[in-house]
Amino acid sequence: MNGKIVGGAIVFSAVVAGVAVYYLQVYGFYEPVPASAPAAEIRLTSAVTGQPEPILAEGFEGIDADSSPLRFRGCFSTPLSLAMLSETFTVYDGATPLHGPNWFSCFDAARIGADLETGAAVAFLSEHEIRPGVDRVVAVYPDGRAFVWHQLNENAEK
């Protein structure tokens, strides 16, 4: 009888720990980024000066977490044309959007990544080294839809 109680306690503890870990990974640390927050200001790196410059962004919706610099994601739209952006700002090679929580439905990393590969969207460098080893990247579609995320850069492996 005592073995059943001990075994049941172990199983119950494992289930509680599993639920807690799942909740913390998917929901616990994320917070919405208000459109008025400094992190919501969308900037792209100028091809001429090499410095980030603000661009027009409307309808920003974003999330972030202090637990990792890679958890930042956002969705917005811009009235700027893709042709003008391509001539003015630095294109980002090797952009790979990271998957976010399923409940943040405006950001579909698989779709964005596929569209970047086919050329349906273009990635731009927002800010190099926004945090050590991390770049902020923006992908823009011809219709003005745009997405922003953080990804590791070449300095992250050093």
Rank of each mutant, 00 (worst) to 15 (best):
158 K>H: 14
91 V>Y: 03
98 L>C: 00
32 P>N: 07
147 F>K: 08
75 C>P: 06
46 S>H: 05
57 A>V: 10
6 V>K: 11
20 A>L: 15
30 Y>S: 01
148 V>W: 02
138 V>C: 05
69 P>Q: 00
53 E>F: 12
78 T>C: 00
153 N>L: 01
156 A>W: 05
72 F>A: 05
66 D>C: 06
54 P>Y: 07
115 D>I: 11
72 F>D: 03
5 I>C: 06
96 T>N: 01
140 V>N: 04
52 P>N: 10
119 G>W: 13
83 A>F: 03
140 V>T: 05
119 G>N: 13
79 P>I: 01
14 A>W: 08
148 V>Q: 02
149 W>G: 04
96 T>F: 01
143 D>H: 02
135 D>N: 12
23 Y>Q: 12
32 P>G: 07
31 E>S: 13
102 N>T: 00
155 N>C: 02
25 Q>W: 13
24 L>G: 04
93 D>K: 01
22 Y>M: 11
74 G>W: 07
87 E>H: 07
154 E>R: 14
57 A>I: 05
2 N>I: 15
98 L>W: 00
89 F>N: 09
63 I>E: 03
65 A>T: 09
54 P>I: 06
26 V>M: 08
117 E>F: 01
7 G>Q: 15
41 E>N: 06
90 T>M: 00
138 V>F: 08
108 D>C: 01
2 N>R: 15
99 H>P: 03
149 W>Y: 04
102 N>R: 00
141 Y>D: 06
45 T>P: 09
42 I>P: 06
15 V>H: 08
140 V>R: 03
59 G>T: 13
116 L>D: 08
15 V>R: 08
116 L>M: 11
51 Q>K: 15
27 Y>H: 13
141 Y>W: 13
117 E>W: 01
80 L>K: 00
130 I>W: 03
143 D>V: 03
8 G>M: 11
98 L>G: 00
135 D>V: 07
91 V>Q: 06
83 A>H: 05
59 G>L: 13
111 R>A: 09
31 E>R: 14
40 A>H: 09
103 W>K: 07
70 L>F: 09
47 A>M: 05
95 A>T: 02
97 P>I: 01
104 F>P: 03
108 D>T: 00
31 E>V: 13
33 V>A: 12
145 R>D: 01
26 V>Y: 07
128 H>G: 11
68 S>P: 10
135 D>G: 09
58 E>D: 14
92 Y>R: 06
56 L>R: 15
149 W>I: 05
112 I>Q: 05
131 R>N: 12
121 A>M: 04
43 R>D: 05
59 G>E: 10
138 V>A: 09
61 E>C: 13
104 F>W: 03
2 N>T: 15
52 P>Q: 11
131 R>M: 12
10 I>W: 14
124 F>L: 07
40 A>M: 07
20 A>Y: 12
137 V>N: 01
10 I>E: 13
65 A>H: 09
144 G>A: 10
131 R>W: 12
32 P>D: 07
68 S>A: 14
8 G>A: 08
25 Q>K: 14
7 G>L: 15
8 G>C: 11
27 Y>Q: 09
8 G>R: 04
67 S>H: 09
114 A>K: 09
12 F>I: 11
133 G>I: 04
54 P>C: 08
123 A>K: 03
14 A>S: 11
43 R>K: 15
